[in-house]
Amino acid sequence: MWKQAIEDALQKTKANIERFGDLFPHVSENDVYHLNPNTDWTDGFWSGILWLGYEYSGDKAFQEAAQKAVASFKQRLEANVALDHHDIGFLYSLSSKAQWIIEKDENAKQLTLQAADVLMKRWRPKGQYIQAWGPEGDEHNGGRIIIDCMMNLPLLYWAYEQTGDAKYKEVAVIHADLSRRYLVRGDDSSFHTFYFDQENGEPLHGGTAQGYSDGSTWTRGQAWGIYGFALSYHYTKNPLYLETAKRLARYFFDRLPQDDVVYWDFNAPVNEETKRDSSASAIASAGALELLEHLAADDADRAYLENAIQRSMTGLVKSYATIGKPDAQGFIERGSYSVRGGNAPDDFMIWGDYYYLEALVRMEKGIKGYWYE
């Protein structure tokens, strides 16, 4: 089943290389991807798909398209286009860092280190956190962190490993500790965002940007936490990060609905109109696969996670994948970007496609994503 799903995704990717040209997919409308000239936070996921396709198949068409995408990311960084946010890790881990991991291209390594320096500009010494959105001092977003940032920290951990400069790891660890303390709740659910006083770092309150309510648990945020804390454990071996990833995973997978693919928020009222988020299920599955790497053979959570991954991925492949729809641009249907904002609430998400493929090739061939070497 996994191999068939991979082959289907790679066939669609081949078609999309021609379809997209020099542009980058974001989310879809009426099953057609919106494209941009490498200006959005999501553009790394397309290059990540291309690198996964090359690693899995050895097909030079994927490699050439991926290299071309990395060149675009070089131009973007040099021109400083739309980089004033924390998602630099999503952009450059899956483009230039992926190229370094696969090809050991020195220029790709240097580009990725430059990207890490861009991310470091989001560090706020007064508050001791990485600011997610907006300029420093921004009235609304100036003191705000979000759980998504856990997936951007690997860029900083990697930069420390490559350079030996402790500042990268120190910032990543401080931010991970803060996220663990304030974004993860006592019942193992999570806030999407948390606010701090910009002058002294005093905690203020939790909130959300895309969840059902400030106190609800946005499923994609929970999935970011599973994978992000597992990766922080990989880099630091801090057992608290491993424990946190396991807790978040159990909360997520304990709440799978009948078809094993989650709704967009665990607290959203469920009826015939409730939106799903297939991308959240794909991210959580990929994160759980990473988590498995760090569990002993006799760990009580191993069998639980193995079963959860099988359920989640089987649900995606059997009920949400576009297998049998050769003209489809996306791999999995019914992702949601922002249900509250009415922005692509039931469409293809390029990050959903990426994590779906990452999970599949990891299960089939042991190929992981590009969060570490």
Rank of each mutant, 00 (worst) to 15 (best):
F62L: 01
A115I: 08
I367V: 07
Q75M: 14
D259V: 02
F73E: 04
L305V: 04
I309K: 02
N30G: 11
A132M: 05
I147Q: 08
D188K: 11
P125M: 00
L156M: 12
F196D: 06
D59R: 03
A308Y: 03
G206I: 00
E290T: 12
Q162Y: 04
H175Y: 03
D353V: 12
C149F: 02
E139F: 11
K246L: 15
D138G: 12
D187G: 08
I130M: 10
E64R: 13
A284R: 11
N238S: 13
M151G: 10
D165K: 11
Y92M: 07
F45C: 00
Y370D: 03
G89W: 00
K368C: 06
T39G: 11
W264F: 14
D84V: 03
G164K: 04
L292H: 02
I226R: 01
I283N: 00
Q329N: 09
Q75K: 15
V81N: 14
T322P: 01
F348L: 13
A172H: 08
L113S: 01
W2R: 15
G221D: 03
D22K: 15
K74Y: 11
E293F: 00
L183I: 08
S213E: 11
R255K: 14
Y56A: 04
A132P: 00
K126L: 09
R19C: 01
W371D: 08
S279V: 07
T42Q: 12
R181H: 14
F196H: 00
D59A: 10
T274E: 08
D177N: 13
F191S: 03
A69G: 07
K3Q: 14
I226C: 06
D265Y: 01
W123P: 01
G369Q: 01
M120V: 11
K14F: 13
I101M: 09
R311N: 12
A65Y: 04
R255T: 05
D299Y: 05
K275C: 06
N107G: 14
V262H: 07
V361W: 04
D197P: 01
T314N: 12
E333H: 12
E18N: 15
K365F: 02
A359T: 03
A79C: 02
Y182S: 01
D260L: 04
Q110A: 06
K121T: 15
